[in-house]
Structure formats: C-alpha cells, structure tokens
Design a protein around this nucleic acid. Structure first.
Lengths: 349, 349
DNA sequence: CTGTTAGCGCTTTCAG
DNA sequence: CTGAAAGCGCTAACAG
C-alpha cells in the first residue's frame, strides 16, 4: 500500500517484520544481518532481498531483546569518586574509546566518596546487567556485592586504590615510589622546608603517598609536616589545610606538596587570600597533572600518572575477566609507574 | 535442602523463582516487590512471606526483561565532543547526579568532532533503547537520526551549540554577549592590542564568540586580529595559532583571547617555548574556567559558563520531552548567561 | 539452504 | 485478594 516510501522510512523494523515483509524466515534474515550469510550459504537471491530491504529501511538491533536472551549486555560500568575530577575524566575518556572499539557501551557514575552510594551504584549497574565493572572504590570492595543473577560474579577491576588483600585485579599508580622521588627532589630544591597537604589519608592511594613522603623526609619530624583532612578530597579541604599551615608558620612555606589537584587549587586560593598572589619562590609539588599548571611562574614539581596505560591495563584486565569468567581470573596488582616532572621537563629516574 | 543459607545468598533470584519457592504467583510477588501491596490489598501473610524472602536473598530487577516489555530503558545518553574536556566533564557529572535522582542511568560517549562517529553513536544509543539523548553535536542534528523503533523520536536536547533552526530544544551559553563583554573589558585594559585565537570557527558556539569579538572590536581591523584554525579544538591548535601570531608580530601581544581552555593551554606552551615563561604583562582572556588559572600571576579575564544551570535546564527539557513525547515538545533555545571574571572577582554586568 | 519453536524476565490484561 | 497467560525482540537448537 505504501509503496512510495522514498528513501529511509522512520520507524526501524524488527527482524520479524522484515522476515514477514519479504517472505522469509527470521533465521534467514538474522543470518544475513549478522553477516553469516556466507557461512550458511544463504542463496544470493534471498540475501540480496534482505540486504535491499535493510539498505532501504535500515535496521538496528534491539539490545533489550538481545540481552535478555544472551544474558549479556555488552555494557560495562565505571564507578569513580567524581566524574568532574580531571584524572577520572581522562580515564573515562580513554576507557570509553576502548569500549567503543569492542562494541561495548560505558555507563558512568560517581560516588562522591559515599560508601552507601557506591553500593547502590554497584547494584544499579548489576540490575542493568553490565558485563563488567571498573571501580575506584571508596571502601574495601566486597566480592559479595558483585554477584550477578544466574552466573558468577561480574568481571571487576579495581583502579586507583589498592585496598588490602583485594580479590579483584587491581591497577594503581606507583604512589609510594613517586611520593618518595617527589619529596626527595623538592627537599633538595627547598632545603627541606616542605609540607604535605592531603585529604582522606586513610585511602590506600593517599596512604601510600604519605608513606613515600615520610620515608623520604625521614621519620623524625615528618609527622608535624604532614597536614591531613579526613574530609572529601576538595578545594575547600586544601584551602583549610593551607590556611592552617599559614596560621601556624606565620609565613609561607618554602615548598609544599598537595595530594591532588583539588587540594592544590584550594591551597593556592588560600595563598592568594593571604598574600594577594602566590609568592613566587614557593615550590609547588603535586600529584596529578593538568596543563594549566604551566601558567604558574612558580617552580612546579609534578607526578604525572600514566593515565593512558592505566586505562589500557585496566581494560585489558577487564576483558580478560569477562572472557575467562571473573572467578577464575587471577588478581594481580598492576603498578603503573608515574613520571616526575619539573615544570615541563621530565626528570630521569 | 540448603536451608542453612546463612545471610544473603549470592545469586539473585527472578520473580518467578521467588514465586515458585514460596508458593504464590508471580503477580503477587511483583505487587509486593513494587510496593503495591497496599493498593491491591495483598494479605499480610503472603506479603510478609515475600518480604522475608527478599530480605534474606535480595532481589534486583532485571532491566533487560523490563525494558523489553515496557519499551523503555530508563537510560539516557549523553554525547559530547570530548569527555576529558573540563567543561563537558563537569556537565556530565551534573547530569549524572540528576539522572540518579530519577532512577535513570547515563551512557556517555565522545565524538571527537567526527560526524561519522557522532552518527554511529546516536544509532548505538538508539539500539540500546535510551529514552533520551543530550547532545553537543558536531553537525546539524537531523531529526531523522533520532528515530526510535515503534515510537516517535527519542527525546533529544541539544546543548552548547545552537545550529541554525534546530528542531530540538537547545541550551547554550550566551556566547555572543559574553564575547562582547570580554572583548570590551580586555580592550580597555590592554589599549586595544588584542587577538582572538580560536579553533573550529564554523561551530555555532565559536561563531557566536567571533561575532561578539568582532562587534566589540569594531568591524574595521577585527579580521586580522582573528586567528582561526579549522582543526580540532586542541592544545596543539592553540600552540600553532600562538606560534603564528608571535612570528607575525615579532613580540608578544599585549593581550589575547582564547576560545577554549585547550587553546589557552597550547597558547601558553607556545609562549613558554618562545620566551621561557609567559610574559607577565600579557592579559589573558578566555572562555571556560578552570581553578588552576588562579596559579597565573598574569591578569586573567575569564568567561565562566553556568554549568550547573545549563545541566539543570537541559535535564528539565529532557525530562519534559520524555514525558510529553519528543515531537510535541516545544523547541525553544535557552540561553544561559555566563559571568565575566577578572582574576577571582566577578565583574558586574 | 531455510523454517519453527522455545524461552530469556518482566509487565499487563483478564479471570477468577 | 490471587493466578494464568501472552508477548516485548532476540537467539539457538533442531528440523527439515
């Protein structure tokens, strides 16, 4: 009746509709659509009929039906403390790229360091039937939370935070070693007048950085140069820590290290609030890198994580676990070395 | 047989399993699980039986089955040029928050300004059955690409880029007005020696900024102060533009405006490459804000978008379109005013 | 080479 | 107040 559909009609069809309209079976249609026409030697005529139809009207699979049948969603979830954080944003961008290449789709969510939210998010993703989860957890990840209907646990990879004896494959930066190098360098340059500002010291990644700092500084006196704030990793935390430090010293420190970009931001604002600008001779040490740091005329020593490799390794582990089955996958901790930069120059090991 | 499942057994059950195990019908189970026990006056006994079972073994819906039946996924997609870009990362973080509050899940993807990828992504999301799409498009968004099986078009909201006569609701910053203000201010402060560095001038948001710049500068001479690069918005673009400018002038400009943070980053690196550091007296003008700018001892004039409100309005539009049906929804262009800051201080209108 | 059929887990009538 | 049955679109096993 409506022969005159010019080019592509809006409404995509189901396999059944296509089969009915060109008078073949769903199997046939499915085989040519899925490119298995060769393998099953579908006759050229029928194949062309299907192809013509699809070319004209288009066809997109309905993943709902597909997932239901296959018990597989071709989706993976990524849970991080904060999507807006540059480090995680980069990571997600990298992961999305890799997912796309494998026909996977990425679901993202932030926890804002709230265990309760983290749990809800995990079970939300599970309800969605994700085939894998990459998580930067804010509490010890319990395998019991990652169980999927019917099957074994979802493939899970932990990033960024190596909680003690985690059962999942884990990919982290070499926080302790980096902190040691950074601290050593900054002490050499500042004559030892250095402070370490950090939030959430109980998080494994931060704990490792603290350990590296303490080690390099020397146990004696390190503790009073370590300013911690149990709160959320945030600019306001950094502001508070720096304000406290300034109050205590009555002068700017010769150098300080911040445990994250957000802490650095806050610390800088506190310095600007107090002195009108960042005193030029302070040496800034920081974890995580952002190109805008280059704006500073201060000396900046930064530890840059190898986000690309972290994403790579994490994704590889995930795919591995998805294929092997999460339970059989080994659970190594992959430590990805970072690089120490002085301004724009990479320092040799 | 296995009576002794202590607390929570791993494998979540289906509604049918639950019904079978406690000897009632699926309808009954579903009613109490969905909290409709009251409405249908399920007897206290059966309800408690179900509740006890669920408390013990847990239950999470399977969205695959649910979506298939309801033709609705409770998922929305967000497509942006680059997830790692601070502006979009913030936006996504805000959107995810709002989605979570409504029981929606967010799928994210970047296009890297490639129309081909954008199209694939759209149809990928459609195949996933998303109920809505928020997109910052890199080409004119054709309604024909947003058709969903069976029903009308997916609810769609365009952000960031107002392509001419778009049929979808659109939420953008007030690029032209902001550019006019920024240019006026920077000219006043630099005596008129200003240049505008931008990538992808044909993108509507950039075009609007150029229009504002040209308008404020005065048509005469504006064109030779406008440096554009058709390529991807990127640091390397910014580097090239600034390098060209320096070659042309033989000296640093008194001030320049960059159309994005990435351009700014590149421009800064070019300055550092050439002069060893960013000459202190250059006034920096830029769109999009990042707290690390504070690090600069240069004067910084920045236009800050109201990301939070953009996310709010966009999400509201989306929900609206999802409820009303995309086709009937009106397609207004919402212009969200930005704010002009000089260093850390907001300038009055 | 092609067709038939059952069933994934859920919701929704429609009957009791 | 509760149960039975159909069907969303897809795939896989089995028949021809």
């Amino acid at each position: 009746m409506d022969e005159k559909v010019t080019q592509d009609t809006p409404r995509p069809r189901t396999i059944e509709e296509i089969a009915a309209e060109i008078g073949v079976s769903v199997t046939t249609v499915r085989l040519v659509i899925n490119g298995q026409a060769e393998r099953y030697r579908i006759s050229a005529r029928t194949r062309q009929a299907v192809e013509a139809y699809v070319a004209k009207h288009g066809y997109v699979v309905d993943h709902a039906g597909r997932s239901l049948k296959l018990r597989r969603s071709d989706a993976v979830g990524c849970i991080v403390p904060d999507l807006a954080n540059a480090h995680f944003a980069r990571l997600i961008a990298q992961l999305e790229e890799r997912c796309r290449n494998r026909g996977l789709v990425l679901l993202t969510a932030s926890t804002h360091e709230k265990p309760e939210r983290e749990r809800q998010t995990i079970s939300g993703l599970l309800a969605r039937g994700v085939d894998g989860i990459i998580i930067s957890p804010c509490e010890q990840p319990e395998p019991a939370r990652f169980v999927r209907r019917g099957q074994r646990n979802v493939a899970t990879v932990v990033i960024d935070r190596a909680f003690p004896k985690t059962l999942f494959p884990t990919v982290v930066g070499d926080n302790e070693a980096s902190a040691r190098r950074l601290t050593g360098q900054i002490m050499a340059e500042s004559g030892g007048d250095v402070f370490f500002l950090c939030a959430r010291p109980e998080m494994p990644s931060i704990a490792a950085r603290i350990a590296g700092f303490t080690d390099a500084f020397g146990a004696a006196g390190a503790s009073e140069r370590l300013l911690t704030d149990p709160e959320d990793d945030s600019a306001s935390s950094g502001h508070r820590l720096m304000a406290d430090l300034l109050a205590r010293l009555g002068r700017p420190p010769k150098s300080f290290i911040s445990s994250s970009l957000l802490i650095l931001e806050g610390a800088i604002q506190a310095l600007v609030d107090r002195f009108g600008s960042v005193p030029r001779d302070i040496i800034l040490g920081t974890f995580d890198y952002h190109p805008l740091m280059e704006l500073s005329s201060n000396r900046v020593l930064s530890v840059r994580q190898d986000t690309l490799r972290i994403a790579d390794v994490a994704f590889t582990c995930l795919v591995d676990a998805m294929e092997k089955g999460s339970d059989e996958a080994s659970s190594p901790v992959h430590v990805i070395p970072g690089a120490l930069f002085a301004d724009r120059q990479r320092l040799p090991e």
